[in-house]
Design a binder for these strands. Structure first.
Length: 482
RNA sequence: GCCCCCAUCGUCUAGCCCGGUCUAGGACACCGGUCUUUCAAGCCGGGAACGGGGGUUCAAAUCCCCCUGGGGGCGCCA
């Protein structure tokens, strides 16, 4: 499916997200994907997914899968996708053509030699760029020796200048740009070559990528000029980890699993919240905090992105997630809950959602809070110790059984009757209502925390509740015997 | 060492471009209070920032310079 070349084609915004499948899909990468996607959508353009897998050593299929799954989960859909490994011949052809046209040359320096130059330069504290040894060598010599192909940066001293949509005007002198490699000695293309060729071929209008690519841009512009297509650039500041130093990808190998999209999904974060949070990192729209993806498409603008790096902030993500749990329709919540618990009786779950959704921050927590409705698998130890122990608790429970029998749960004023019952029992045993409530909560839910008791009873059903209370009574008796 | 970028509460940010309306606004987090059968949520309130130094100007968070601090890059990685 190739994008048709038409008049529209030249006006259309085309962005791309070009991850290299050499690592997991984390929030930093996801944000650049999101921004590229938003910009394309906002302009009714196209969004391309390009897998930059020219590094065959490090590229892994599993990472590619994780990236795609992550994008799908977040709702970032692409119009077209391809892999650079499928286009190797194209890059090679162009590299050799560039030699013919005088824009590139063969470099016979060995990796070992280059490494030596580098180390020496670093030791002498001078710029470790390629010294241009092969630049003026006769090109036909040593045809049998392995060679790489390097770009010939113009001799004249001038400034390569570009207007970055986010960063503003950036100028770099040609003397500060080295003769970068286009094709390796094993004939595989480097990132700079493959990336520019593709961006030119697919007529990418806006390259939106991380700020770590700023220093590649002047090189690429030189190459783009030769290729005849220069996109606009928008370099977005990197996302910094929650704490500590260095960029997120360098810390990614470490223990922080919360930065991976797949982990966030597993932990019960909603795509709405993640997207919302990602968008607000380095971008704002007045005082507005909650953005749906549709609103983002409308309101987002690359030029409003901040130039300073933002720190990833879990507290805010949690807050946004709880907000989104409340915003989403209860039926939708039930569907999404299926990844976290087995749901046979949907209506039952649905009926308790309103009481649960204000109490949790993630779907995972939500599932945990709902599960006891279908049966107590174990009693909370601390709660058992506190409320399911002595004779008084037993008496209270027995009393509850008797009184509960009298209440018609479905009737109009059942809730009021229930409240009155609790109060009366508390008074009778010289306790506060809290005590009675907690004893009951432990008996029917097995936990110290639950949705309001009356709602729980309604969902579980009076018969089952009484059964559970009787089990709890037996538990107390059993413990007292010991 | 060289190159590029940045700098407002702890964090994300509004304001900065087009100086006065900023006794610097919002949000998260935090701390009080209130409500309450648990836990939350809600409501009310609180503390909390223009990195430092020079200019320019009647007036600077806003413009200029220096310093400091932070980030990124300097591969036959992407």
């Amino acid at each position: 499916m190739y994008i048709r070349r038409s008049l529209l084609f030249f006006l259309m915004v085309i962005t791309r997200f070009a991850p290299s499948p050499t690592g997991r899909f984390h929030v930093g990468v996801a944000r650049t994907a999101l921004f590229s996607y938003l910009w394309a959508k906002k302009n009714s353009g196209k969004f391309i997914l390009r897998i930059d897998d020219t590094d065959k050593e490090r590229s892994k299929k599993e990472y590619e899968e994780e990236i795609k799954e992550g994008l799908k989960f977040l709702g970032i859909e692409w119009d077209f996708e391809f892999r650079q490994s499928e286009r190797i011949e194209i890059y090679q052809k162009i590299a050799f053509q560039l030699i013919k046209d005088g824009y590139a040359y063969k470099c016979y320096c060995t990796p070992e030699e280059l490494e030596r130059y580098r180390e020496e330069a670093l030791r002498k504290k001078i710029s470790p760029k390629y010294p241009g040894i092969c630049r003026n060598k006769k090109q036909e010599v040593d045809e049998a020796k392995p060679f790489a192909i390097r770009f010939r940066v113009p001799e004249e001293e001038f400034e390569v200048e570009f207007e970055d949509i986010v960063m503003g005007k950036i100028k770099v002198k040609t003397v500060d740009i080295e003769d970068f490699t286009l094709l390796r000695s094993d004939r595989t293309p480097t990132y700079n070559l493959a990336s520019c060729v593709d961006d030119a071929d697919f007529k990418i209008t806006h390259i939106i990528r991380g700020a770590d690519h700023i220093s590649n841009t002047p090189k690429q512009i030189l190459l783009f000029k030769v290729l005849g297509h220069i996109p606009q650039f928008a370099h977005i500041p990197l996302v910094l980890p929650d704490e500590g130093k260095g960029k997120i990808s360098k810390r990614a190998e470490k223990e922080i699993s919360e930065i991976y999209i797949s982990e966030l999904k597993k932990d019960g974060f909603l795509k709405e919240a993640i997207v919302n949070h990602l968008a607000r990192l380095g971008w704002a729209y007045g005082d507005k905090e909650i953005f749906s993806i549709d609103e983002l498409v409308k309101l987002f603008d690359i030029k409003d992105i901040n130039r300073s790096p933002a720190r990833y902030n879990f507290d805010k993500l949690y807050w946004l997630n709880s907000e989104w749990i409340r915003i989403l329709d209860d039926r939708e919540i039930v569907q999404r809950l299926k990844d976290f618990m087995n749901i046979q009786d949907e209506p039952k779950v649905l009926s308790i959602i309103p009481q649960v959704k204000v109490r949790v921050k993630t779907l995972k927590e939500m599932a945990e809070m709902i599960k006891p409705i279908f049966g107590i698998t174990m009693y909370d130890e601390e709660g058992k110790e506190k409320f399911l122990k002595n004779e008084k608790a037993k008496k209270v429970l027995e009393e509850i059984v008797v009184e509960l029998e009298k209440i018609k749960i479905e009737s109009e004023n059942a809730r009021a009757e229930f409240d009155k019952m609790m109060k009366n029992i508390a008074e009778k045993y010289g306790e506060k209502v809290v005590f009675v409530a907690q004893v009951m909560r432990m008996a029917i839910y097995g936990k110290l925390v639950s949705p309001p008791l009356f709602d729980v009873i309604k969902v579980i059903g009076k018969e089952n509740v009484i059964e559970r209370i009787n089990s709890a009574i037996k538990l107390i008796e059993h413990q007292n015997q010991k």
